[in-house]
């Protein structure tokens, strides 16, 4: 038993180092054009916050939460935008970029000739995606704090929650990407992503949906992320947030496992 477990434990730092080497590769490949892509991805949720959160919010006024707390519409929408930006940042990296590297650039074929294993590539790519997602989240939280939509302390607490959301979507996106046949399939995913963005309790409280629809919404990973981030930024954390965290951790683990397996199946021919 010991002889079975020990080599595995010893292999852990090696595996982590190999995952890091995949992230290093991405850092080396950073070029000026990439920054443009990054900035456009960051701007999107900020624009939504101003147009809908602040703009439409002026027409709506205050919103009463189930707890009885009354908050401005902008404060209600902002955490949802944060969660969606974590989602889109992670997805951009683990879908388009990942698929292109795997299918067209054949980057992973080269890497798999080294000791690096498929799961370690998946982990490295996800870690890299999270650097991007994390940067988006930090920037957005700074804006929220400056606009007094949350407090600095709650913003700090919301950051890891947003990063967890990014991990879940990054892993999910990577797993889905291994099933994509061509770029056209990504149109479907973009539609799904947009539907999630609109209906995950982002702009309207999930409680206002009909019962059946509400069940569906509560199953959505973005809803879980929005719930988690919102409860922190509005100071309404409760037991339900354990479910959110568990759900997102579960999605991350499942996504990574599926991605690693599928990569091995596709690349170890």
């Amino acid at each position: 038993m010991v002889s079975l477990v020990l080599p595995r434990l010893a292999a852990l730092p090696a595996a982590a180092a190999r995952s890091l080497s995949v992230m290093e590769r991405n850092a080396a490949a950073l070029r000026s054009a990439y920054w443009l892509v990054m900035i456009s991805g960051f701007l999107e949720p900020v624009l939504y916050l101003f147009s809908i959160g602040v703009g439409v919010g002026a027409l709506i006024g205050g919103l009463t939460l189930p707890s009885g707390q009354v908050v401005s519409y902008a404060a209600f929408v902002a955490p949802a935008m944060l969660a969606s930006s974590a989602m889109s940042g992670a997805l951009a990296e683990t879908t388009f970029n990942f698929f292109g590297k795997m299918k067209y650039v054949k980057l992973y074929d080269g890497i798999l000739a080294t000791p690096v294993r498929p799961f370690e590539i998946a982990l490295g790519e996800l870690g890299w995606a999270m650097l991007r997602g994390g940067a988006y989240s930090a920037g957005f939280l700074a804006i929220m704090t400056a606009m007094e939509l949350t407090t600095a302390l709650r913003a700090l607490a919301a950051f890891p929650a947003a990063v967890l959301a990014g991990f879940a979507f990054g892993a999910l996106g990577m797993a889905l990407s291994t099933y994509m046949r061509s770029w056209q399939d990504f149109d479907l995913m973009a539609s799904a992503q947009f539907a999630l963005f609109l209906f995950s309790g982002t702009f309207v409280p999930a409680e206002s949906y009909p019962a059946l629809l509400r069940w569906l919404v509560e199953l959505s990973p973005l809803y879980r992320a929005v719930e988690l981030v919102r409860s922190i930024s509005l100071g309404e954390v409760g037991g339900a947030q354990l479910v959110d965290v568990g759900y997102l951790v579960g999605v991350t683990a499942l996504g990574l496992m599926v991605a690693g397996r599928r990569m091995a199946k596709l690349l170890y021919k």
Binding site: A17, R18, S21, E24, T114, P115, V116
Partner: peptide, 9 residues
């Protein structure tokens, strides 16, 4: 070359 070397730690 340098990046590839890193895959070998």
């Amino acid at each position: 070359l340098t990046t590839y070397a890193r895959y070998f730690r």
